[in-house]
């Protein structure tokens, strides 16, 4: 039983996480179906995204779709090869096959990544598939250092962002004029903290006061997410962190309230009392009458014997 519960918890967390990490519009590049050699197989379109999270893992996601009766449908189970620089076996980073939504995910293995340059080129290619025409898609991104820190003062709560990237000499330098959005993670999406994005200053920094009154979980925890979205040079950068800056959720202590609409176990006490009193009263009298009838029968026997 508890195993099942745990598996479920796990499934849920995984699915929540997948949707949160990879879904919201991170597209960087999209290939049109190639119009090369016609083998009669249907063509696909590949959308390749680069996503870096918490300054740590580089993740490539390729979404493969195909045109069916004028709508794009996900291609499930197609295998996608991810390369760096150019297509070739020596440049293969890994292979992944697409899920139900047509998404193939690859966490770029750091050891295979050639660090000769600060710019990377990634290619997602579907090759020699039995059902679909070959297709590939390529994106270029630059190395970056995107960090969010959370600082709590006596009366202030600040979100600090710093974005740096290697300059011509390869030393880290701040990057200005990059739009960063701040969010709070909610169950079904990211809640933007402001209507307009913030922009990094000449120090590559942003400092924002975290607003009060945003609900967190029962401990007040919430997840703050900073994002650089679809940047032409850096791709998608994301930094998220959990902190107890939310208003703690007070779970209704009367959740088992005795109401007319509650379950039978939580029926209002007055109702239980009234109905049982009436039941006992009336059925007590009925039982008494039945007993009296029994006495009639007994009296009848006495006389007869």
């Amino acid at each position: 039983m508890s195993t099942i519960r745990l598996i479920r918890l796990f499934t849920k967390s995984l699915l929540v996480s997948i949707s949160l990490c990879f879904l919201p519009g991170l597209s960087v590049a999209q290939s049109e179906p190639s119009d090369s050699a016609d083998t009669g197989k249907p063509e696909t379109s590949i959308e390749l995204m680069y996503n870096e999270a918490n300054n740590h893992s580089k993740v490539l996601t390729a979404t493969v779709k195909t045109n069916v009766k004028d709508t794009y449908e996900a291609v499930k189970g197609i295998s996608v090869n991810f390369y760096q620089k150019e297509v070739g076996p020596e440049n293969l980073l890994g292979t992944s096959s697409s899920n139900d939504k047509g998404v193939a995910i690859l966490v770029v293995p750091e050891d295979k990544l050639s660090k000769t340059s600060v710019d990377y080129t990634f290619i997602a290619a579907s090759e020699n598939d039995a059902k679909f025409e070959d297709n590939q898609e390529e994106i270029s991104v630059s190395e970056s250092d995107f960090v969010m820190t959370l600082e709590q003062g006596d009366s202030s709560r600040q979100v600090l962002i710093k974005l740096q990237a290697p300059d011509a000499n390869g030393t880290m330098a701040p990057v200005a004029e990059v739009e960063v959005r701040l969010y709070v993670q909610r169950l079904f999406g990211l809640l933007a903290l402001s209507v307009d994005p913030e922009t990094t200053d000449e120090n590559g920094e942003i400092s924002v006061d975290f607003p009060a009154g945003i609900p967190g979980d029962s401990a007040g925890n919430l997840i703050i997410v900073a994002k650089v979205e679809e940047h032409e040079k850096f791709g998608n950068l994301e930094f998220q962190r959990k902190i107890s800056w939310g208003t703690p959720l007070i779970i209704d202590p009367n959740k088992n309230r005795r109401e007319l609409w509650s379950s039978r176990a939580n029926a209002p006490l007055y109702l239980i009392f009234i109905i049982n009193t009436m039941l006992i009263g009336i059925w007590g009298v009925i039982a008494y009458i039945v007993y009296e009838v029994f006495k009639i029968w007994k009296l009848g026997r006495q006389k007869a014997s």
Binding site: I289, L299, G300, R301, K303
Partner: peptide, 25 residues
């Protein structure tokens, strides 16, 4: 069903009482 009814005064008394109670109940 007659339960050995034989117009025993005790029986009559019980019956009358029981009917009375039921009529109220």
């Amino acid at each position: 069903l007659a339960l050995g009814w034989n117009s025993h005064p005790g029986q009559e008394k019980i019956l009358r009482r029981a009917e009375q109670i039921l009529a109220i109940l």
